[in-house]
Amino acid sequence: MLKINKPIRVNPTFMQVIRLLGHGFLVMWLAMVFYQGFTDQLGGDPVQSLLDFTGIGALNLLVISLIVSPLAMHLKFAQLLPFRRPIGLYSALYALSHFYVFIAFELQFELKLIVSEIIERPYITVGFVTLLILIALSITSINAIKKWMGAKWFTLHSLAYVAVILAGLHYLWLVKSAWYEPAIYILFSAFLSILRRTKIKKIFK
């Protein structure tokens, strides 16, 4: 493997521009796909298209947020680290949109059905637990709360690794037969957890 000893340091303004572009891109993309959904430009079943887009989007963002730390360490590129929080928050935003599309357009606010689906369908239960984890992590990512929580914060935020594996399981469980893609997500998430095993172990001891 390529060994880079020299730390990477780039112009902070450049990182700021990348950050703003990232915000713009992720917000615009989500807004655009919703707009297409409302104006009937998402193919035969706009609800399914939106569910797929927001679900896969949330999972991809969660995986990316977890890649940041190992990548920053490997490349000695500390300026990447501040990207973790916004990417994680976007993952939660996409996951919330996913849940909103599910209850608003798939189940059309049939309250009884919402409750029974979450309880009775294992893949929906797993998805819902993932969403709760992401919401908890989002709320506790506020600086004041983070400070107040101290060391407990790191324990709580290790749940991101649980979330990514549950999200992969949620995906694997809902496909009809093409299980390869979700399997790749799960394997990759497991690999990420192994990369960070020492850190995770330390926290749970």
């Binding site: 919703f34 009937d40 079943d45 357009f105 798939e106 049939e110 369908r121």
Partner: peptide, 20 residues
């Protein structure tokens, strides 16, 4: 893995025109 009690009928219209 899912309920067969109801269905979403695909006709014209976007998200707001979905009928279950």
């Amino acid at each position: 893995r899912w309920s067969q009690g109801r269905e979403r009928r695909i006709t014209d219209g976007g998200l707001l025109a979905q009928n279950r």
